[in-house]
Design a protein around this nucleic acid. Structure first.
Lengths: 194, 194, 194, 194
DNA sequence: CATGAATGAGGCTTCATTCAT
DNA sequence: TATGAATGAAGCCTCATTCAT
């Protein structure tokens, strides 16, 4: 029951940050939720910002790991991309609170979060770009600036997650996966067999 | 010369918010930049948040207006969508600071901004969805959940703008427009003639 | 009555710092005493430390000014030194609280105060040293390292003030002046005529 | 090798307090330096303040002991005073860190330290005063309020040590001893034979 | 309309001290 | 004895907002 206390704090932080946002959350909120004293927080994190950042990284590594695993054994850009998108969506679904933090709360909260976020976005896009470049060389997709279309592909996915997080039209994110995948693959020009 | 003082404040706010973010910006920063006293700010805005919200609306109406105008005279979903995306990108380019505010700074700053942003995103997606539904009925595009794909289309565009704002791979946003449009139209299945 | 508010704060700070010491005094203590809100303090001082430093400077300039004035019209090292010491003592008597702050509270409170204090001590000693060097060249005093004896002279005076501040043996500081002056002048070797 | 652990802590405390001052030093700093756990500190000292106080006493007893020893076998106020001052200076030189603590750091750190310091100063002055009173009765020195001049003598010595500690003009404290002794003896009127 | 001095609630963080192991 | 994780009181400072002039 008494797992690692740092983890308990991280979980408390996840919950509270996800529901109230970074600036509306006080360190006190987090420690209250975790059932520890304020000082304890600073035993495990140098600052509120560092804790938030740790959350960002945690989601990121989860997603990256899921995606990497899903790609293993897949052949060809088509399969890899589809698997990647699906794995990404699944990772978000599995950690809705972390997703809220990364996709909604982080952006405008602090310049440093923003930078980190930008890095994450970029690395996601880079992964996609590799597949696209491969497809491009193999003549599987039409000529295109893959720096742009890889971004677009990532953005398409993000926005759907976004909408799902906000409880909009996207009821079941996993059910929406097919449409997202179809849209994305068609978008880059991988049309055959759809 | 002495234009509207409210506008002067809005412009100052745009500049400062865009560069420092909502929470890192003080009302004092804005009034200093505008060259007026702090009290004056509250003559034109009930609160800092309201001022920020006004900026959000300003960008929104600009974009909507540009898009609406661009669509005038266009025929068919294909033309309309392409024109819409291009007009949107142009509007962002024309108001880079406002774009920064809406796409980067607003998100995690405050729950109320978030809601407004969600509305804006939704209305953008709705516009697109209308075109898609029309195309769907006309049999121009394959079966798809247009609630999802409209979001995806908007997200693809947003992310490219995002990347441009951050000074990433997207050097010239207008030059990227072709790729974004192509990606989006292919994504929804409007492939013919590309 | 409503003099300068900064001065009111400085006076409040003087009183509170003098009685409780730097670290035992909170900014709240000062503003309460001054009858203003906490925020007001920061309208006039960038920090608690800066306020304390201002007090140090205030005492220093008062003393220096008194001494300089007292020396005007005095002839010869003997007269000048005697007048300087007396003027110094009088300045301390006139501002007992500031004296407490500078001589008792400042030293160990913060490294930066210490440095400032060291500067002040040094400049006092320098003034004395000039007189001594003059006397030395005129053959009025025996050979001696005036860097050392000037310090000693200043220290002799300081310690008596110190003792007076603590309410020790030195009942009336001005009454003690004769003894301090006699001790100091004899100490440097200006004996004739005592 | 494993000397007394309390002593190890005291030594660590001496080093750290001397360099950072009382308030800037944390108990953690001390235990880190001593290579023990925080809790251990409280096995040997009831509080941080008590530890500091112990240091003050340690210096005091060292100085008193040195002075007492130096006076043994000296005859007459003149010899005794000179030996006392020299012994005092030597004691400070031998324990520069403790000297820093007592002369610089202790002052404004806490009211209780202040009181203790005042006692120490007083007892030093008392020792001197006895010699002076003896000299006065023997007609060796001119009429003077020995409560004042004994303070002045102590202050002269202190200030020179102070300056030496701060690395000012006083390069070698022992080399300066002659001047300090000469100044002090002349100051009280013990002039013959200088 | 305009000013800007004044307000004071509230947040982050530190650190001396305790106590279960 | 020794440890060091945990505590929580307390302090400095910021800044949105008000209001008398």
């Amino acid at each position: 029951m008494e797992e690692n206390k740092r983890d308990r704090l991280l979980e408390a932080a996840t919950t509270v940050f996800a529901s109230k946002g970074y600036h509306q959350t006080t360190v006190r909120d987090i420690t209250d939720y975790a059932g520890v004293a304020v000082g304890t927080f600073y035993l495990y994190f140098p600052s509120k910002a560092a804790c938030f950042m740790a959350l960002l990284d945690r989601l990121y590594s989860t997603v990256v790991q899921s995606v990497a695993e899903a790609r293993r054994g897949r052949e060809g850009p088509r399969e890899k991309l589809a698997a990647s998108i699906r794995a990404g969506l699944e990772a978000f679904v599995a950690q809705r609170d972390l997703a809220r933090i990364a996709l909604i709360q982080a952006a405008g909260a602090d310049t440093s979060f923003d930078r980190r976020l930008a890095e994450i976005h970029s690395s996601m896009a880079s992964l996609v770009k590799e597949d696209l470049d491969e497809a491009l060389q193999a003549g599987l997709i039409p000529p295109q600036d893959t720096r742009i279309t890889s971004r677009a592909l990532v953005g398409a996915t993000y926005e759907v997650v976004h909408s799902w997080l906000r409880g909009g039209d996207v009821g079941d994110l996993l059910a929406a996966a097919d449409d997202v995948v179809a849209f994305s693959l068609r978008g880059v020009g991988l049309t055959e067999g759809l």
